[in-house]
Write a protein that binds this DNA or RNA. Structure first.
Lengths: 210, 210
DNA sequence: TAGATTGTTAATCGATTAACAATC
DNA sequence: TAGATTGTTAATCGATTAACAATC
């Protein structure tokens, strides 16, 4: 059903809500409110209630939300109540940081295999992973039933890698290369470009703030 | 002037436009059009023209845009026709990747100093940088006239670090810690949370795509 | 001149907010 | 019961798109 799809911008906020809920649980909190969630996130309580209303009714009038229950519900809605297997393409410094980034595994995102095209890296270790030749991408994606990918290669290689991933049926790509990928409908791409974010902030750094 | 400020969402697209223009220059192109830029970015030509119109008139009817000229103009508008000095707080794996990330320097974002609170790291090198004690943050930010910061510390430390940076007059923070910072008006924060982005994409990974 | 493309206006579309009845 | 907070509706606000006169 496409007709009453949840707006993508709403979906994008759910992981942030999930994050706050996990913090609240860590603090031992049982109950919260849209007001408190909004305060913690710098958004309005109305927006929180509206966003949640796309998925169901999770609260109790006069009381608020059960933190653990809402957390569990959002986890299900986001499909993150399971493990996801990913491939990492690019075993440079960024790849190095990514294989050591514990939050992936902590949230159910497992790196199944790591690839590079550099003969000096292939066959060696990156953290606890063997670095495979990019030639083995197709075999290993199928073997490990991988569904997501992280592109951490230079911009010149990114499009080719993306095309191969898409041909393999990968439907979710996290792209660290500073390019805009053209992908078929149904393929999700998220970009991380810290330079673009710094430039965005630089705009406001004037003598008289704009 | 706040009255006709440019929408932040428009400012956020300028770095992406800049990126395509740089690619076009690398390809030796002299002239482009809103149509071509839009095609490369997957957005409408109307949006490109509308966005640019907030800042002036940069094209020529019937012809399009001079690539180099538009690039130079956007560079000025974004305040990235100069060097920016940053501090990096956190000398872990992420910090390691960031000091080796050449795109920062290539775009005028210089890391002036690196900090950590781990005695095992302080005094040692991270890439070509000395790792300083976080105790020296105030002195070195002032000494090097730093204006931006990258937070690459664990979530438990992030708020404290941010507070100290803000007290130092830092007005732009790129935050890799998965928290929402509460900051005074005029302080920019941009977040990078790859887990949130994976979770966002996970939502759409269903048997029947939503 | 004819064709192309800009910059801008007005219309459309979508997202956020305010307000409040429902109800715990 | 009185107080609090949800879920939802309607109003507001803002962003995107379509269309076209201006003009290179």
């Amino acid at each position: 059903m496409t007709s009453n799809a949840v707006p993508d911008i709403v979906v994008g906020r759910l992981p942030i809500y999930l994050r706050v809920l996990n913090h609240l649980i860590a603090e031992g909190r049982q109950i919260t409110s849209s007001q408190e969630l909004g305060d913690r996130l710098g958004i309005s309580s109305a927006q929180i209630r509206k966003d949640l209303s796309h998925f169901g009714e999770f609260g109790k009038q006069g009381t608020g939300y059960n933190v653990a229950y809402l957390r569990d519900q959002l986890t299900e809605i986001l499909n993150v109540d399971r493990e996801w297997r990913m491939v990492l393409i690019g075993a440079g410094d960024l790849g190095h940081a990514l294989v050591h980034y514990h939050r992936f595994a902590e949230h159910g995102f497992q790196i199944a295999a790591v690839f590079d095209n550099d003969a000096d890296k292939i066959g060696h270790k990156l953290g606890e992973y063997d670095v495979h030749s990019i030639d083995d991408l197709e075999n290993l994606v199928r073997l490990h039933q991988v569904e997501m990918a992280i592109i951490a290669v230079p911009v010149a290689a990114a499009r080719d890698v993306a095309t191969r991933l898409i041909n393999l049926g990968i439907k979710a790509i996290l792209c660290y290369a500073p390019v805009t990928l053209t992908v078929p409908l149904g393929v999700q791409v998220q970009y991380i470009d810290p330079v673009a974010q710094l430039q965005h902030m630089a705009y406001y750094q004037t003598v008289e703030a704009r």
